[in-house]
Design a protein around this nucleic acid. Sequence first.
DNA 1: TGGGGGGTTGACGCAGCGTCAGGGTCAAGC
DNA 2: GCTTGACCCTGACGCTGCGTCAACCCCCCA
Lengths: 260, 260
Amino acid sequence: MLTIGQLAAYAGVTVRAVRHYHQIGLLPEPERDAAGYRRYRAAAVVSLIKIRTLADAGVPLSRIGQMLDADPAAFAEAVRRIDSHLRDEIQRLETSREQIAQLAAGDALALPSEVIAYLDRLRELGVSERMVEGERDGWILLAARWSDRVREFMPGKLAQLDDPRVVRLYRVLSEIFDDDDAGDDSRLEEAADLMACLAEQAHASGEINLGEEAYDDLPHDLLDSLAVEADPRVERLVELLRERGWSGWNRMERLAERPG
Amino acid sequence: MLTIGQLAAYAGVTVRAVRHYHQIGLLPEPERDAAGYRRYRAAAVVSLIKIRTLADAGVPLSRIGQMLDADPAAFAEAVRRIDSHLRDEIQRLETSREQIAQLAAGDALALPSEVIAYLDRLRELGVSERMVEGERDGWILLAARWSDRVREFMPGKLAQLDDPRVVRLYRVLSEIFDDDDAGDDSRLEEAADLMACLAEQAHASGEINLGEEAYDDLPHDLLDSLAVEADPRVERLVELLRERGWSGWNRMERLAERPG
DNA sequence: TGGGGGGTTGACGCAGCGTCAGGGTCAAGC
DNA sequence: GCTTGACCCTGACGCTGCGTCAACCCCCCA
């Protein structure tokens, strides 16, 4: 007759685990000796080993009981279900590993590599770190909704950076936002002029950039809010753009031409 | 400004999860509106997405906070640790899958394939199901301690089944145990004779079967107990064996020859 | 006779939320 | 103005598989 400690040691589990199996009715309580100690027969060791084998294989304790006294067909069926569940788990973890691998750099958090490349290009072009981080957060929002679409757009976005006016715009914006002096700034005007000019060109060449109708408006509103939160001067810029006939910030649209 | 439901939907999590992140201080509590509702800025969406990205990658919530405001070096180090942890997890699950794959048949529970083959051979030779199950449980005990050693012994055990006396022994034992009549049985004598004879031969040919000194005695005691538990007539058999100069059941040893 | 290494029950703790219970709020339709 | 349904709020328990006290009992050895 074995004590609980011997039983546990033989099956390679802790005493606490054995008691737990008793509690949930997975392993029957044995008889007690005069002192109230549990005394186990050899058969209990066999039961316990079977339980551990299934538990180690990932079977939840709540199902092990049923499995152990199921007929072979039901057992096999249960095994199949467990196995496919394990497969899914492994798949999930492997996906996680891939994601983790993307996280080596701080920027990579929740962003596809194409976007990282775009952000790095901005840095090369002299865009300020603060500005790049703002951009990054915007792309995080977009990537959360349409990560695959975002990838498709990146080549176009990269190409835009070959236009000196775009680069100039980014630099002016960098200066504006890096300058803690909140006063009215002539650079705001220059930025607004550049944006209007670029928007005009894009509009003329028929670019239906990003948008299309499939996209609901929530993310664009969010992007605009994000920009304003990051720097309230964005609001002033939006105002200046409106004066020039354009509404919005991330998605600019031509206003009805009332102010002749 | 977003409500908690909108925030959650945008980041692809549940409202409950967001509140949980507030509780543990992972996501800062936003301001409330007049009704006491939480109102979120766009930046909260970005934070939440970052949190989920790390959480989905298997980072425990308790570490996500630290990671998010760690410097790049510490972040990279944390990522490495997470990754190696994930690798271990995957390894563990794959081992589980292999084990699960062994469980297709009822017998396979916690037994290497060599033992399964041995048990199947017993069935072919006409050994009763009850007897085979008894054998199986014994092997489960042995395999739990020395699964690799057990594999080594199986060829020898299989070879023993080529000896007609061994087969005869198993059949006689099958008959004995299958017969619910507990009365004193002449077949017990035959079984004892066979066992003594085989033990004699094994001893003479110098077989140090299984044993060697490395094995502690616990498992053999357990095996004997298991047999007695399965059928008390084993006790009578042990007695008969003792009369013939042998002690034990699974591991038989020659007695000092006192009874001339 | 005391100490150390067993055993006993009972209870809380853990991670990451799910899921009530028992309220209040808001927008819309009657 | 009243109802309805979809949200929001806090608080609390539940789940899994045990780990880890606490407070006490028991046996064996010196």
